[in-house]
Amino acid sequence: MPLITCKDLSLGYDGKEILHGLGFEVCAGEYLCIVGENGSGKSTLMKTLLGLNQPFSGSVVLGEGLKKNEIGYLPQQTQIQRDFPASVLEIVLSGFCGVMGVKPFYTPAQKSAAVRNIERMGIPHLKNRCYRELSGGQQQRALLARALCATGKIILLDEPVSGLDSKATAEMYDIIERLNREDKITVIMISHDITAALKYATNILHIGGEIFFGKKEEYMESSVFSNSFGGEKV
């Protein structure tokens, strides 16, 4: 049974429909890239998967005992965060906020898990540093560590490499791939970078205009791909 099944979704905001008849499913261990032009509804779709947006019609069903608060999320950075006075550890710990319900404080086990997740991201030396003084790539790693605190199963990434330089971008893709391959974490990623999407993903969801959902190999053969990225050599 798939982790997430979407049936006949119709999405939009402010009462305006931008996507309809969307259906796809994500199974455990897959790496799904969502591609499409700006304004095609990628972020809206992700918010719907997370339950932040209600779809106009259709349904999102979670399977295999996946609970709503077990979905990790790496949102795009907001203006507020850029000058936020907080240490990396404080931010990573806040990933546990959803699972602890009404309990007011973090347990020692959660604290050590947060430290482990920071180490997994390769930034143990930045544990007590101030978030706003980090580079873009380091900030993204801290936020990814936070997302890992919220989940061990599935992680949703909204353009995780936007605004990063090429070295940080490569490192970020590397980390995400490791999480997928070694830790068997299911990945759903919005990406502008079709090259990387085709390199790392197992499945592709193309939205905006024509809709395509299927294996990466099928996508590269499809007319949707050649129409959108026709002349581009991948």
Binding site: L50, G51, L52, K68, F84, I91, S94
Partner: peptide, 10 residues
């Protein structure tokens, strides 16, 4: 720090 992350994770 992050309202949408907090909401998304329950």
């Amino acid at each position: 720090f992050d309202e949408s992350f907090a909401a998304a994770t329950g």
